[in-house]
Computed example of a mutant assay.
Amino acid sequence: MIQTQIQPISTALASALLNKINNKTKPLGSLGRLEKLALQVGLIQDTLTPELNKPVMMVFAGDHGIVQAGVSPFPQEVTQQMVFNFLSGGAAINIFSQTNAMQVRVIDAGVNHHFGMVPGLIDAKIGMGTQNFLTTPAMTQAQCEQALTVGISLAHKEFESCSNVMGFGEMGIGNTSSASALMAVLCELPPEQCVGRGTGLDDAGLQKKIDVIKAAVAQHKLDAKDACQVLATFGGFEIAMMVGAMLGAAEKKCVLLIDGFIATSALLVASKMQPEVLEYCVFAHCSNESGHRLLLHYLKAEPLLDLGLRLGEGTGAALAYPLVKAAVNFLNEMASFESANVSQAE
């Protein structure tokens, strides 16, 4: 079993941070969620003057055997094609990350394609895609633990390169099916509440996808308390590696930018392994993918944005990052009543 040591966030500076926030030249609470963000980042870094250094977006790619059951309108080759698109800078996540000065890391966690030596691609391949979890576990326990371990080491490597803000994105045809199954089992919810249209299923396709997930969940009969087994049974290599990266980033006291449905399903697994990971998370947005709003509610999460996005790739996390920057900047740079010689309310 993977061992990480995520420390609960210290609240020793909470009073001082709140005092600093409240003494800025504004009415109390008038910056709303930004005030909560500033407090959270200050507590994560245990300082009154937090800094956001070298933000990085980690995009994990992997293929899924469950596509054999007809759960996606897109062919599996799209995963590898999108990896090349990421590497050439042509995807939405490239544009949004570049807009916000974030570095993009493209990680082959388990794409069903031999890339060879491709510049810019991080080769962390566990296998050539997972198995069809309708009939057999998606991966072995050994593969699952390998993916987790690699994910932890990738996050640690980014931290050692001075990054303290990490966003998490993904690419993998069929991965909304994995996310839906993980959610259904770990949240103990009916699959129909967790399954959405993914990359654009019509009504008949959506019903088929629901039926497949229900059959798979019934087939494996797993204990919701065993998150690692649930992950191995229904996850993708990219999801498992993302779980590890989230745990590794939180272990190093980084700020975690959580994207949409698939990334949040990875966080769900991580939180079952190490509940403290949630304290380090900024929930970027509420996806338009059915099930995500319910999953956010389950995690007691407050997303920053609700733009109707359902692309994945980490796009929502990249779009939300400027709000985190704004929160830190107002905490550090905005004048206080005293420094600006402005009278306070009586």
Rank of each mutant, 00 (worst) to 15 (best):
G205F: 00
H156S: 12
V243A: 15
C228Q: 15
E170G: 02
A224L: 01
T233I: 06
V195G: 08
T135K: 15
H156Y: 10
S163R: 07
T233S: 04
G127M: 14
T135R: 15
L189E: 13
T176A: 00
V185L: 04
E188L: 06
L148N: 14
G120F: 06
A147M: 03
E145M: 13
R197S: 13
I122C: 07
T233G: 07
G151F: 11
E158H: 05
K157D: 13
M242P: 08
A216G: 08
M128F: 15
M183R: 10
V195D: 15
E145T: 10
P137L: 10
A218V: 11
H220E: 10
D211G: 00
K209V: 10
G129D: 12
S163V: 03
V212T: 01
S153C: 02
G235R: 03
A224C: 11
Q146L: 01
G174K: 05
F168D: 12
M128G: 14
P190C: 09
H156M: 13
R197T: 12
G167N: 12
M183K: 15
T199K: 03
G196Y: 10
G167V: 04
T135A: 14
L201G: 06
Q146F: 05
P190N: 09
S180P: 09
K125Q: 14
A240T: 13
I173T: 03
G196S: 13
M171F: 08
G129L: 14
N164C: 01
L182Y: 04
S178T: 10
C187E: 08
G205E: 06
C194A: 03
L231V: 02
A227I: 11
S163C: 08
